[in-house]
Design a binder for these strands. Structure first.
Length: 423
RNA sequence: GGAGAGUUGGCCGAGUGGUCGAAGGCGCACGCUUGGAAAGCGUGUAAACCCCACAAGGGUUUCAAGGGUUCGAAUCCCUUACUCUCCGCCA
């Protein structure tokens, strides 16, 4: 959520920056500003009246105690109208506050000025491209055929057990997945990220706090009976560990990594682009999260990008880094870098990681604060990134490393898989 | 799932209708003391919002959350959440 104080002082600038992400509902911005004014005016009035009421109540108390019953009773009569008017003001304040809140949560984050304008993924800024795209032998297959051929995964079984888009991994496929998770977590540990195993279901408050609600309602599986949501990413529970906390400056940066199953409904997705592991409803991901001082957040964003780049390099996959354009930018993000790896058989780039700086957008909802040098509480900045999401990494390894003898496991994974080749 | 107990400031803990944002202790900060430290002494020590210059100063709210009673609620009533104990079930 944006900070209202920041909006009311820079209305035009806010609109200008929101336009980068093609957000044009300026009425909403104006509405927020108006409601904020109303709110302050109403609160001011209410405060004054409450102050009056308290004074009267205190003097009534004093009168009773000194035995002046009659005077006290006379005074009590005066309070009736004041009480009524307090009640009315309270009601109107709370309805203004509610309307303000409802409007506020609909405003997306303000993009960083470096975010390129644009509408679609074609407008994303290609920052870097590295790695060699391997030449495959005649008859190389897309990963879904390889998965079937080597009996690594079955979507049919998953569909029998659960539904379309729920893969069942087995044998070396399952082992490869476990190896990747272990490798990614070890990598994170070595880089100072504290390992977290979070709940896979979260309550509504948590889903709001990291911004999945109300924006992505409908993308999450909702357990209605218990009011819980299956997490779409470990970011949600892990970041929410720090909801409503004030940390010391010395505690920053807070670096966390969480591995989890991720659940996404992906309503409305279909077609060739979602075949195999390209898009599934349940997948594993290792996420990294940082909570930092505001001044350092862009430095940290670069650090996290470099971190993800290292992992991908170590897997020897050809990749590119994109700075997302405004149109592609997530609701909560001020700036996002996407990582894509090239899958040779599909002849296609697949997104495997997304690293974002949310600035104070999440922390304002989360109320994650730190004490600055003046002892004042300030909102932290939060960042997170996938490091990494498994299915497409597996797809890329299978497609790019296939040989006529089998699928060659990247060097760094071999200690984890216990085998060099899938044949 | 059944029965009971509880939830107060960073922590512990007092407080059953008025002067309680809340005793006392611990912790922390600053000062005095000291060659230095400890002890001791003193002072201070929550958050949010509003007025205002993000200063000083002032106002309001907050004793798990929400609602109610009352001129007045940490204190009384109702609802909800959570924690703990015992029983049941169980990886």
């Amino acid at each position: 959520m944006l900070q209202i104080a920041a909006i009311r002082d820079n209305i035009d600038q806010v609109k200008e920056l929101l336009e980068i992400r093609n957000f044009k509902e300026f009425d909403l911005v104006d509405k927020v500003v108006k409601l904020d004014e109303d709110r302050r005016k109403t609160q001011h009035q209410l405060d004054a009246q409450l102050s009056e009421s308290k004074k009267i109540a205190k003097s009534i108390g004093a009168l009773y105690q000194s035995g002046k019953q009659e005077e006290a009773n006379a005074m009590r009569e005066k309070t009736a109208t004041l009480k009524e008017s307090n009640k009315q003001l309270e009601e109107s304040l709370s309805s203004i506050e509610q309307a303000l809140q409802e409007a506020m949560v609909q405003l997306p984050n303000i993009p960083n000025s470096l975010v390129p304008k644009g509408n679609t993924d074609e407008d994303n800024l290609n920052i870097k491209q590295e790695g060699t795209i391997p030449k495959l032998y005649e008859g190389a297959k897309p990963h879904w055929e390889l998965l079937e051929q080597y009996e690594l995964m079955s979507l049919e079984l998953g569909s029998k057990i659960a539904g379309a888009g729920f893969p069942v991994f087995m044998g070396k496929g399952a082992r490869l997945q476990r190896a990747l998770v272990a490798y990614f977590l070890d990598f994170a540990n070595k880089n100072g990220y504290k390992e977290i195993i979070p709940p896979l279901l979260v309550n509504e408050t948590s889903a709001y706090a990291t911004g999945q609600l109300p924006d992505k309602d409908g993308q999450m599986y909702h357990v209605v009976n218990d009011g819980l949501y299956l997490i779409p990413t470990a970011e949600v529970p892990v970041t929410n560990m720090y909801r409503d906390t004030i940390v010391g400056k010395d505690d920053l940066p807070i670096k966390l990594t969480g591995h989890s199953q991720c659940f996404r409904r992906e309503a409305g997705s279909y077609g060739a682009h979602v075949r195999g592991l390209n898009r599934v409803h349940q997948f594993e991901k290792v996420e990294i999260v940082q909570i930092v001082e505001p001044q350092k957040s862009y430095e940290v964003l670069d650090e996290m990008v470099a971190y993800v780049e290292q992992i991908i390099q170590s897997l020897e996959l050809p990749y590119r880094i994109l700075r997302l354009c405004g149109g592609d930018l997530g609701f909560c993000s001020a700036m996002t870098y996407d990582f894509e790896v090239f899958t040779v058989a599909q002849d296609r780039w697949l997104e495997v990681s997304s690293v974002s700086n949310f600035e104070t957008f999440q922390s304002n909802r989360l109320k994650v604060r730190y004490k600055d040098d003046n002892g004042k509480n300030q909102l932290c900045h939060t960042l997170n990134g996938s490091a990494l999401a498994l299915p497409r990494i597996i797809a890329a390894i299978l497609e790019n490393n296939q040989t006529e003898e089998g699928i060659v496991i990247p060097e760094v994974l071999r200690p984890y898989t216990g085998f060099d080749i899938i044949s």
